[in-house]
Nucleic acid binder design. Structure first.
Length: 831
RNA sequence: GCGGACAUGGCGGAACUGGCAGACGCACCAGACUUAGGAUCUGGCGGGAAACCGUGGGGGUUCAAGUCCCUUUGUCCGCACCA
């Protein structure tokens, strides 16, 4: 038993202490810090590269596999870029406001501020243990008053520029989180965070006018180096739709209302109009006789949860208001209904119903016995039973009859335009961003309400509006800050009379909408950032984080950037030029990791056993980066073996260093050179596009080739050393501590990270002869060896004259021969 | 319901612009070294006795298809009464 360690441990080869471990990690982390290896160089900005991971929420637990996958591998990428001569700016910080800390406080009584800062300390330590290249001088923490002061400043600037406004509107309410939510935070009718069913509440809340930028947000998407999927999500989220706005008059009154339609060609088929139950004009058109049923229906609609309302299978409901509208194209009187299939937030909240040519209207009309009038026929006898929703030829539409739908849309709107009753209109699905939250742990909204002066922004020199510490934050639907007398009661900055502060805090997405702008200038206490300086450092060149932020953070950050540009604070259009999403590492059972499933993988245990580099390397090698996949214990063991294999290679090289070698450059060296240069080329290209698995594969091949070469009796030690040198440099981004240790072992000067990334020699990739596959009618039958320089004619001859060819060509006619240089020869024959 | 992505050995995953499918690794098998092996090294490894067959299923285009087109199934994602 006593000896088992020695026997079963691989640490005693060649009498020297072997095996990379956490000790090596610590050794180099210390040295890197002491020598300030990763300090960003503020001078040489012509080759700057801003590499950023989405910062994270400081949770109490240790870093999980997902953090390592995102941070560790992006760090490898950053390290490679550094070796390639880039001046890499790679900061890290914390998205520290948010619900978990507050909920934790409600449960345990520990103040969010205390738990958050404690968690941040733990996480900082863990991130340092990971050995990433972060320059901590640029750290930011969004719950620091020095940071949220500027978040509040952002709010005020948006307010001054008409991009922040307050309105009363039906807003999404999560009964469990006891706060409102932005549209983006409602997923399938449920709260994104706690999955409770979201309901509607009529509240006065702050909004950011992101819709003002809908078109530009859409227009810039094609130019972004982002995953297509993410671009598509944003495009759909913005949801541009072209149509017309048409004005209807209410019968017997001066009142008018507009409807948005993409099918102006069907205007002659309108048989009724429908208002959203929440629409303000509902009350105005409702007649006394129908008032009660309208009120009852409004109540019914209001009570529904989002999930109920969104259900497309449910039967249509609605009631007649008693009022009538006049169709502007033919002055026909049509009844006005209200129904919850019309959404208050989209378009004008009113639709013209054309049951003959719209499925929803058709269903509704059938149920309530409303007239259905065909005005479109299918083209060329195309089947056109109702509801016929395609384009076609107009019928029964006065002078427009006979036109195509496309033509009629234009002509009808033109006519309405002349009469001032309609115009072309682009509509967006995107709604303004609701930013108020009835919670404590967030940046306070810097607004004061004064009885005399009304809504008064807090003057800049009074920022930050600090969060009070002693607060009762049990949520009851009212903002915790509202109950904090000392906070809520203040004086009006304008007139000095008593006034009240806004009791809400800002959505944490506001904090993360501009943090990338603050990193480069995080100590600036005069302004959020210096314009000239961030114009030099931004945009972010490579942004890496989860795909779940496609329609929220990434859209908001783009909006902020554009708004700040237009307000004159910066001079670029987009914050993140290139974006990568990491995949998800699943549990060994292939399911999403979760405590309840008991399939979580704790990085710490593996790091303790194998060291941080082995863990990182496994994450790099075992998965397609953007896909992720199931964890596999065997995989990490394999990587550990690979690391040991490299170390043994270095050791055996060193043991024989003094022995004489040759300086020949024969076939063996040529073969080694081929593998070496292939590796350089492939690793450079693959790692650049976050294809780490194939990068590591090429390094394994190079290691295998070196082993093969090492086994030879007579070798060119100088060339072998050069090759090992390249191997270590290329391995260093992925296994930084280990590579640094091997580098030192080889006797090279500190640090490997100050070396130059190797460049491949195209000559070494050329082989003297190449093997080509020969196909007969597309099937590979045999192989031939030809000089690499052979032209098509020579290759064809070699293929046809090969001794193996005869069998296949006997009694057959050669139709043609296709030669693909360097690949194959295809001989097409027939009997 | 609409839109998109994906589907490759026992497993994780490779495959340029249509050009030898299965790189690299795991697992497995054999051998070597060994008192020993869960260490290390060497070799093998899609199926099939072979002809041949093989990239979810079916069809097509092409000299040639994992890759392009049509269709179908399954998984995942986005949107979901958007007028």
């Amino acid at each position: 038993m006593l000896c088992s360690d020695i026997f079963f441990d691989n640490s005693c080869v060649g009498g020297e202490k072997m095996a990379y471990s956490t000790e090596i990690d610590r050794k180099w982390q210390k040295k890197w810090e002491e020598t300030k290896l990763y300090k960003f160089d503020r001078e040489n900005l012509d080759k700057k590269l801003y590499c950023l991971e989405m910062f994270s929420y400081p949770s109490g637990a240790n870093l999980h596999v997902g953090h390592w996958y995102n941070f560790g591998l992006t760090d490898s990428w950053a390290r490679m870029k550094r070796l390639q001569g880039y001046n890499v700016f790679h900061p890290m910080g914390f998205d520290a406001f948010g619900l978990p800390a507050e909920n934790y406080a409600i449960k345990t009584g520990i103040h969010p501020k205390d738990s958050t800062y404690r968690n941040i300390r733990t996480m900082e330590k863990q991130l340092k243990d990971m050995g990433a290249t972060y320059d901590w001088d640029y750290e930011i923490i969004t719950c620091d008053p020095e940071y949220y002061k500027w978040t509040q400043w952002m709010f005020l600037k948006l307010y001054e520029n008409g991009l922040a406004y307050r309105k009363k509107a039906p807003v999404n309410w999560c009964p469990s989180c006891k706060t409102v939510l932005a549209n983006e935070q409602v997923v399938d009718g449920a709260c994104e965070r706690c999955h409770s069913e979201v309901t509607k509440r009529d509240l006065t809340q702050w909004f950011f006018k992101i819709t003002e930028y809908a078109q530009e947000l859409l227009d810039c998407i094609p130019g972004l180096d982002w995953p297509e999927k993410t671009k598509k999500i944003q495009t759909n989220w913005i949801g541009r739709s072209e149509g017309a706005e048409v004005e209807f008059r209410v019968d017997g009154s001066d009142l008018t209302f507009k409807v948005f339609t993409t099918r102006a060609d069907t205007l002659y088929g309108v048989t009724y109009v429908v208002l959203a139950p929440e629409s303000e004009i509902t009350d105005l058109v409702t007649t006394e006789e129908y008032r009660q049923q309208v009120e009852e229906y409004k109540e019914f609609a209001r009570k529904q949860t989002e999930i109920e309302r969104m259900s497309t299978v449910k039967e249509k409901t609605g009631v007649f208001t008693g009022g009538y509208a006049i169709n502007p194209v033919n002055n026909e009187k049509v009844p006005i209904w209200i129904a919850d299939y019309v959404l208050a937030g989209y378009g004008t909240g009113c639709v013209m119903a054309v049951p003959a040519h719209d499925e929803r209207d058709f269903e509704f009309a059938q149920k309530f016995n409303l007239p259905i009038r065909r005005v479109i026929r299918g083209m060329d006898g195309m089947p056109d039973e109702l509801p016929f929703v395609e384009d076609g030829i107009l019928v029964d539409s006065m002078e427009f009859s006979g036109m195509t739908s496309e033509q009629a849309r234009d002509e009808i709107v033109k006519k309405l335009e002349k009469e001032g009753k309609g115009e072309k209109k682009v509509n967006y699905r995107l709604r303004d961003w609701l930013v108020s939250r009835q919670r404590y742990w967030g940046a306070p909204i810097p607004i004061v309400y004064c009885e005399c002066c009304g809504t008064v922004p807090v003057p800049e020199d009074q920022l930050p509006v600090e969060l009070p510490y002693d607060v009762e934050f049990t949520p009851d639907g009212e903002s915790p800050l509202a109950k904090c007398e000392s906070y809520i009661n203040t004086v009006c900055p304008k007139c000095g009379k008593p006034a009240k502060r806004d009791p809400d805090t800002l959505d944490t997405f506001v904090c993360s909408s501009w943090y990338f702008l603050r990193y480069p200038d995080n100590r600036n206490d005069k302004e959020p950032f210096n314009r000239e300086w961030i114009n030099k450092l931004l945009p972010v060149d490579k942004y890496v984080g989860g795909a779940e932020h496609a329609s929220m953070h990434l859209l908001y950050a783009r909006f902020f950037t554009k708004a700040l540009r237009d307000m004159g604070y910066l001079d670029f259009d987009e914050p993140f030029l290139s974006l990568v999403h990491q995949g998800t590492i699943l549990g060994p059972d292939g399911a999403r990791m979760s405590k309840s499933r008991g399939n979580t993988i704790s990085p710490d245990e593996y790091i303790e056993e194998y060291g941080s580099d082995v863990f990182r390397l496994y994450l790099a090698f075992g998965f397609a980066y953007t896909e992720g996949g199931p964890w596999n214990d065997e995989g990490i063991k394999a990587i550990s073996r690979f690391v040991n294999r490299v170390e043994r290679l270095v050791d055996s090289f060193l043991n024989a260093r003094d022995k004489t070698g040759s300086d020949r450059f024969g076939p063996d060296e040529k073969e080694l050179a081929f593998v070496r240069n292939t590796a350089i080329k492939s690793v450079t290209e693959d790692a650049d596009k976050f294809q780490f698995n194939t990068s590591i594969a090429r390094l394994m091949e190079l290691t295998n080739a070196l082993y093969k070469y090492e086994a030879l009796d007579n070798k060119n030690r100088k060339y072998m050393e050069e090759t090992i040198r390249d191997l270590l440099i290329m391995l260093s981004p992925f296994a930084p501590h280990f590579a640094e240790e091997m580098w030192e072992k080889m006797g090279y000067p500190y640090s490997i990270f100050n070396e130059k990334w190797p460049q491949y020699d195209p000559e070494a990739l050329k082989r003297d002869t190449v093997e080509l596959a020969v196909q007969i009618n597309g099937q590979v039958k045999y192989k031939i060896e030809v000089p690499a320089s052979a032209d098509n004619k020579e290759i064809e001859e070699a293929a046809l004259n090969d001794e193996k060819a005869a069998v296949y060509l006997k009694d057959r006619e050669i139709v043609k021969v296709i030669v693909v240089k360097g690949r194959l020869v295809n001989i097409v024959v027939k009997k």
